[in-house]
C-alpha cells in the first residue's frame, strides 16, 4: 500500500472514531483448529552477512505460546550454479544460516529448498521451494530531517532523495534506525510502497518515514543520528507485507475487506516469505 493510502486510511479511521461512540471489550470466543503448516521466513540481502532462514510451524490460535521451531531440516540456497547448505544455529533452534557471509547481488535469482520436514505430523516428510530475484536499479542519495509541527502528529519526517528506473515497476521497503537502534523492528512497523506515484523516476524529498515526538523511542533530539534503510523488494514481498499489515491492523467494517490468508511465495501450502532484496542506507544527524 502506498504511503498516501496508508495515511488517509489512518486519517479516515480517526475521523470515524470521533463520531462513532465505538467501544471495545474482550470477548470469549471458540475457534476451530487446523493442521500444522510450515512457516518460513528467509532473506538474502546485499549486506555481507550470513543470510538466515527461520523455520517454525503454525499452531492453534489461542495456544498463547511461542511458535514451535523446526530443527534438523535440510535447508539449501542455490544461485549462480552454486548450492549452499544452511546449518542450524547452535543455540537458536529453527534458525538456519549460510555457512559464510556474502553479499547478495542485484539481478540474481535465489532458490530456497527445504526438505526433511514433517510439518503436518503425518509421518511423511515434505519438501518446499521458493525463489526470489533481487531487484535493483534504485539509488538512494540522501535523507533530510524535517520537523512537522502539527498538534496531531508532531515529529520529524524523514525525507528521501533517490532515483529509480521509471520504465520498470518497483517496490520498496523502509526501515528506520536511530543511533544504530532499529525502530521498525516488526512486520507491522515495516512500511512498503510501490512506485505508482513516481512515474518520472525521482523521489525528491519523499516522506519515507516519520519519527513521532510522542514516542520516546522515536523522538529525535539534537545530536541523534537517523538512518533510513531503503530496501528494493519484489512484488511478492510487497504483497506479503501489505497482506500481513492488513491482518495485523484488524477489521473495520468501513473499509476492510474480508480477512484472508497472507500471500506467500513458498509452495506446498507453507506460510511465510522468502525474499531477496537490496539494501542502501543514508543517515542524517540532527544538528545541535
Amino acid at each position: 500500500m502506498s504511503r498516501i493510502q496508508t495515511y488517509y486510511r489512518s486519517g479516515l479511521l480517526m475521523v470515524v472514531l470521533f463520531i462513532a461512540s465505538s467501544c471495545t471489550e474482550r470477548i470469549d470466543i471458540e475457534l476451530g483448529s487446523t493442521f500444522q503448516r510450515l512457516v518460513v521466513h528467509g532473506t538474502v540481502t546485499t549486506d555481507s552477512v550470513r543470510h538466515q532462514v527461520n523455520l517454525s510451524v503454525s499452531s492453534d490460535y489461542f495456544v498463547n505460546k511461542p511458535s514451535p521451531r523446526i530443527s534438523k531440516a535440510v535447508v539449501e540456497l542455490s544461485f549462480d550454479d552454486m548450492t549452499l547448505l544452511l546449518s542450524e544455529h547452535d543455540t537458536i533452534p529453527g534458525l538456519y544460516e549460510t555457512p559464510y557471509a556474502f553479499r547478495g547481488v542485484e539481478g540474481t535469482t535465489y532458490k530456497l529448498d527445504i526438505s526433511q520436514v514433517d510439518a503436518d505430523q503425518d509421518g511423511q516428510y515434505e519438501t518446499y521451494h521458493a525463489t526470489s530475484t533481487m531487484p535493483g536499479g534504485t539509488v538512494l542519495h540522501s535523507i533530510e530531517l524535517r520537523y512537522i509541527a502539527t498538534p496531531i502528529f508532531p515529529g520529524y519526517q524523514v525525507a528521501m532523495y533517490a532515483i529509480h528506473l521509471p520504465e520498470q515497476r518497483d517496490w520498496f521497503g523502509f526501515k528506520l534506525w536511530k543511533n544504530g537502534f532499529l525502530l521498525t523492528d516488526t512486520l507491522a512497523k515495516y512500511s512498503v510502497m510501490s512506485d505508482d506515484l513516481f512515474d518520472d523516476g525521482y523521489f525528491p524529498g519523499f516522506p519515507a518515514g516519520f519519527l513521532s515526538d510522542e514516542d520516546p523511542r522515536q523522538a529525535v533530539h539534537p545530536g541523534d543520528t537517523v538512518t533510513l534503510e531503503l530496501n528494493c523488494i519484489e512484488q511478492e514481498y510487497y504483497d506479503f507485507v501489505i497482506d500481513a499489515q492488513l491482518e495485523i491492523m484488524g477489521n473495520n467494517p468501513l473499509f476492510s475487506g474480508p480477512s484472508a490468508n497472507v500471500s506467500t511465495n513458498i509452495d506446498n501450502g507453507a506460510l511465510g516469505i522468502f525474499a531477496a532484496y537490496s539494501i542502501q542506507r543514508a543517515s542524517s544527524i540532527l544538528p545541535q
Partner: peptide, 25 residues
Amino acid sequence: PFTLPSGRYEVMGNILPVYTGRNEY
C-alpha cells in the same frame, strides 16, 4: 458471516492468522 482464524503463526515479531475458509463463522 465472518472470517475467523483457525490457527496462527509468527513472522518478524507479529502473529498472523491462518484461515480455513471465508465467512465460516
